[in-house]
Amino acid sequence: MSTIFDLGGKVAIVTGANTGIGQAIALSLAAAGADIAAVGRTPAEETVEKVRALGREAEIVSADLSSIEPVQRVVDETIAKLGGLDI
């Protein structure tokens, strides 16, 4: 897939990455070179597999974002698992 965006070396958090728009965003960012922290209440196993098939790193970060309580943990876990956070 050709893209005008180069996100190589970047790490992105994508919420709702399990299905629909969230999954499409995760896959588009990965196609542009970003590694993905797939965040949601339901583990985004299919999304992670597809991101990895694109040659990018991907990790599941489980969180219920109906409140802001888990936000700092999501950031900390993303940095711990993927080495940074850019997007």
Rank of each mutant, 00 (worst) to 15 (best):
E46A: 15
I79C: 07
I25G: 03
T78Q: 01
I13Q: 00
I25P: 00
V74C: 00
L27D: 09
L85K: 05
E69F: 08
A44T: 06
A37H: 14
G40H: 09
V61A: 00
A24C: 15
V14N: 02
T42Y: 11
S28H: 11
S66A: 15
L65S: 04
V39G: 10
L7Q: 10
S28K: 08
M1H: 10
T78N: 00
K81L: 07
R56Q: 14
G33D: 02
A44E: 08
N18W: 00
N18V: 07
E57A: 11
P70T: 11
A32C: 14
E46K: 14
A30L: 03
V11W: 01
V61F: 00
T42F: 07
V11R: 01
A31N: 13
L27Y: 06
T47P: 03
G16N: 12
A17W: 01
P43I: 09
E69N: 15
D76N: 11
Q72V: 15
D86Y: 01
D76Y: 02
E57T: 08
K10N: 05
D35M: 02
K50P: 04
V51E: 01
E46R: 14
L54W: 04
A26Y: 07
I21L: 13
K10E: 13
I68S: 15
A44G: 10
L82S: 04
R56F: 07
G8M: 10
Q23K: 14
V51Q: 01
G33A: 14
K81S: 03
A24G: 14
E59Q: 12
A53V: 06
A44R: 02
E69Q: 15
T19K: 14
T19E: 07
D64M: 04
A53K: 11
G83Q: 04
V61M: 01
V51H: 01
A58F: 02
A12C: 12
E49T: 13
G84C: 06
G22M: 05
I68M: 15
G33M: 05
F5K: 09
S66F: 11
S67A: 15
I79L: 06
D35T: 08
A53D: 13
F5Q: 12
G40P: 05
G20P: 09
V51M: 03
Q72W: 03
